[in-house]
């Protein structure tokens, strides 16, 4: 049944978010640390287990994959509900603080990606 898949997905998210909150509380911050990441791992492990034991039916899978496929539209809705006006009205300093950080990080991504590749080549 399709709802089984959606239920597995929902449970993964709920448990992951609760674990992320718990992790936050343990180190003393009122924020979620890695909740979505933990949820992703739970979904990967649970569906992998069901697949290996032959219990993951196609209809169950469709209850998960629908939500994955709707991801881009959800992101479009997210971008349409961003506080763009707030970002543009922050003045020169806020714009510069945000933009410079992004520029440096883009540069670092390029550097780190190359670093990783270099190591890979040395190893092999």
């Amino acid at each position: 049944m399709t709802i089984y898949g959606t239920a597995i997905l929902s449970l993964s998210l709920l448990i992951g978010l609760a674990a992320g909150r718990l992790l936050g509380a343990l180190v003393g911050v009122d924020a979620d640390i890695g909740g979505v990441g933990i949820a992703m791992l739970l979904l990967i492990f649970s569906t992998d287990y069901l697949k290996r034991t032959g219990r993951l039916q196609v209809s169950t899978e469709s209850g998960i994959s629908f939500w994955g496929a709707i991801y881009v539209p959800v992101v479009v809705a997210m971008s349409a509900s961003q506080n763009v006006r707030g970002a543009l009205s922050g003045g020169v300093m806020a714009t510069l603080a945000g933009a410079l950080g992004v520029a440096v990080c883009f540069g670092l991504v390029g550097l780190f990606v190359r670093l990783g590749r270099g190591k890979e080549k040395e190893e092999s």
Partner: peptide, 14 residues
């Protein structure tokens, strides 16, 4: 958003 993003992990290789 979080539900959809977790769903994208379906099929990711460990």
């Amino acid at each position: 958003r979080d539900l959809a993003i977790v769903a994208t992990a379906f099929g990711v290789r460990m």
